[in-house]
Design a protein around this nucleic acid. Structure first.
Length: 426
RNA sequence: GUGGGAGUAGCUCAAUCGGUAGAGCACCGGACUGUGGCUCCGGACGUUGCGGGUUCAAUUCCCGUCUCCCACCCCA
């Protein structure tokens, strides 16, 4: 048997109904904040990701689906392509390619699949879905303003509330600008040097490869040491400090709760200043339901104009998981099951179905070879609200037997009144 | 990529010491020729994840492999 490949999966009804309703809510909220949808290709030039996400990040170094395209001629080599591991790089590429700064401030959102070759576990797949948004534009349009950071965060709080997610919490930090981070990294390395031999093996490795990750350590014995390490907050320059302060003040003013977490660091190279994460308890170790931050230098590093921006990505698979904790997934029910009865009745039933569906009635069709009992059983299984019997008697009379499946009441209804009666009995 | 657990019917699970696979639910048919849910009767249902090994005999023991779950790494 051919099965879905590792880390991919089929989304089946009724779960797809939950995905659709969640996405509908998301689109509603984006609409209220005047965000517009962008759809970028699911594969891009490999270079786009190595330059934006960062050559040394795990994503680029070992998690991308990359292949070499064919050239024009058989012998010619093609370019290196990659299935997108995240969507911000693609959006910024499109921003540059289509000169979107001509529009001033861009507020863009996307919903779509992303790909990373990781070991699958709860809420983590190799093809996974993200809902994300970006605010990007020239600084003169206000893209650098702390008001944008706060707007994004307030939108997210609204979004999670509207979706019915209970018990989320917002972790907030500032990772400063590039030079702050460089100075901090240096200081952190220095501070680690004398103490790291006393720490766990993971920390010893992190100290070399990615010192910031030392803060993720969960070994109790290491915590006192970690407490003594310098924090990024001590290295922010004055403009970054003020920016971060302003973001917090607006959040307080609009009433969005948050926790400062100066251990929160972002994995991707392009992040600057505000960094954040929303977590949810019901997700196991993968407790981050969304993450994001500011990326003021990204456009320039991709050869574009100066275009500060801020964005986020929601792990949709994890969002749905959290939603399933609270919400029951319900299969939508048909309004009517049309039961043709006897030879030739398929034709009549098809005509009726066409008429009813044209009036937005959700209609399911039976088969003239079914005995009536079987039609009713089928209707019950589908949880149809009504059964409409289409037999010779009905066709002759021009009125059809319509049974309400919940009350058991059955009446004869003239053809012209069917849609009204079916709708009215809901 | 690393470590641990699991894989038996569509689903949830059982099978004693190694003796040749079973239940509930679901499905199909009938009782009941134009009226569902309840009941009764009957039916179909399996490459025991896959491949190899040991054995007279493997769902069971051994090796490999795949997939899922949990955790690590990392991240949404």
């Amino acid at each position: 048997m051919i099965k879905a490949v590792r880390g991919t999966r089929d989304l089946l009804p009724p779960e797809t109904a939950l995905w659709n309703s969640a996405e509908a809510t998301v689109r509603d909220v984006f609409r209220a904040y005047n965000f517009h949808e962008i759809r970028t290709p699911i594969f891009e030039s490999t270079e786009l990701f190595s330059r934006s996400v960062g050559e040394e990040t795990d994503i680029v170094a070992k998690e991308m689906y990359t292949w070499e395209d064919r050239g024009r001629a058989q012998s010619e080599k093609g370019q290196s392509l990659t299935l997108r591991p995240e969507n911000t790089a693609g959006v910024v590429r499109a921003y540059i390619e289509h000169k979107l700064w001509e529009w001033g401030l861009n507020k863009l959102y996307y919903i779509g699949p992303q790909f990373r070759r990781e070991r699958p576990q709860k809420g983590r797949y190799r093809q996974f879905f993200q809902i994300g948004a970006e605010i990007i534009g020239p600084a003169s349009a206000g893209s650098e303003s702390p008001a944008r950071d706060a707007e994004i965060l307030e939108l997210l709080a609204t979004l999670l509330d509207r979706l019915g997610i209970k018990g989320w919490s917002l972790q907030l930090n500032s990772v400063g600008c590039a030079k702050d981070r460089a100075a901090y990294n240096e200081a952190l390395r220095k501070a680690l040097e004398p103490v790291v031999p006393r720490m766990c093996v993971d920390c010893q490795r992190r100290a070399v490869t990615n010192p910031l990750r030392v803060f993720d350590c969960k070994v109790p014995e290491d915590q006192p040491i970690i407490e003594t390490l310098p924090r990024i907050s001590q290295f922010l320059d004055e403009p970054c400090r003020e920016h971060f302060q302003a973001v917090q003040e607006i959040l307080k003013s609009v009433g969005v709760d948050f926790q400062l977490d100066d251990r929160l660091v972002r994995g991707l190279d392009y992040y600057t200043r505000t960094a954040f994460e929303f977590t949810h308890g019901a997700l196991g170790a993968q407790n981050a339901i969304l993450g994001g931050g500011r990326y003021d230098g990204l456009s320039e590093s991709l050869g574009g104009p100066q275009a500060p921006g801020i964005g986020f990505a929601i792990g949709e698979d994890r969002l749905i998981l959290a939603l399933q904790e609270s919400a029951e997934t319900v299969q939508p029910k048909p309004d009517v099951f049309i039961a043709p009865l006897g030879a030739g009745m398929d034709r009549e039933a098809a005509r009726l179905a066409r008429e009813l569906r044209a009036q937005n009635i959700v209609a399911e069709l039976g088969d003239e070879t079914f005995r009536l009992k079987k039609s009713f059983e089928a209707a019950s299984r589908l949880k149809a609200r009504h059964v409409l019997i289409v037999g010779e008697n009905e066709v002759k009379a021009g009125a059809f037997a319509l049974k309400n499946q919940e009350t058991g009441e059955q009446i004869s209804v003239p053809r012209a009144n069917l849609a009204e009666r079916i709708r009215g009995k809901q």
